[in-house]
Amino acid sequence: MKLNMKIILFEIIRLILAFIFVLSSIEKLKDPYAFALSVDAYQVFPDWIVNLSTLLIPWLELFIAFGLIFKFKLRANLILFGSLMIMFTLLVVIAMIKGLDIECGCYGESSSKVGLVKLVENFIIILSCLILYYHIHVQNNKS
């Protein structure tokens, strides 16, 4: 019974992480130009990186989300999920250090501003991703 609860909890985490990326990618794909301006607002990247991010990130998020939902190459998708989240978190930290008053650009028009709340939110997501990855790693070793 206890084991079942644990498995259900991990399944819920997996689906929540997938939902976050589905939402995030759809909002970015709806208006790639607004997303490009959001990336540019961090004042960190040259134009070619802004363009590459606009091209790749929304689709990468969508594919990762599908991978998580359908358990396709789960570990690889979790690594990519975690890497993207760490990258986003670093950008939030840079924006905070620079004192920028900008939106994070995470969920299109409904994005919140960069700040401590966003940072905590990202840390929780990264932690959930790590826990899920470790769980899958342990499960694979058992089988």
Partner: peptide, 19 residues
């Protein structure tokens, strides 16, 4: 795992460029 990572990135790249 590394092979899977590369496959996902290449798939995304192909799809996003085409789209």
């Amino acid at each position: 795992l590394i092979k899977n990572l590369i496959q996902i990135i290449l798939l995304t790249l192909t799809f996003s460029v085409a789209y």
